[in-house]
Amino acid sequence: MNEMIDLLEKEHMRLDLPEINVGDNVKVYTKIFEGDKERIQVFEGVVIRRRGGNTRASFTVRKVSFGVGVEKTFPIHSPLIDTIEVTGKNRVRRSKLYFLRNLKGKAAKLKEKRDR
C-alpha cells in the first residue's frame, strides 16, 4: 500500500468509536434517514468477523431474531454509525466465528472473557 494513500485514508477514519473485537457483544446505533427525518436504529448482537484495514475496514454482527439468524455488516468508519456500545466480551479462539451459524440455542452461547 502506498504511503500517500495510507495518509489519505487516515483522514477519513473515525477514532471516536470504541475498539471492537471478534466475540464482543455490541450494540450498534445507526442513523436512518426517512425522507427528511432522522432516527437511530439499534442492532444488537455478537461480532463474528472483522476485515479490512484503515477506512476499508468492516465488521459483521450476528443475532438471532425470532428464531431466524440475522447478520449485518457495517463499515467501521461510516458516518452513518452514531455510536457503538460494547456490552460484553467473550473468550474466543478464532478470528471468524462462522461456526455460530450452525449452532442453535444454548450451544451458540459464547463464554465470557475473564480478566487475568
Partner: peptide, 14 residues
C-alpha cells in the same frame, strides 16, 4: 497512478 481506495460521502455511501 498510486492505487485505489474508498471514501465516504456525507450520506454514508462509499
Amino acid at each position: 497512478k498510486l492505487g485505489m481506495t474508498q471514501i465516504f460521502n456525507e450520506d454514508g455511501t462509499i
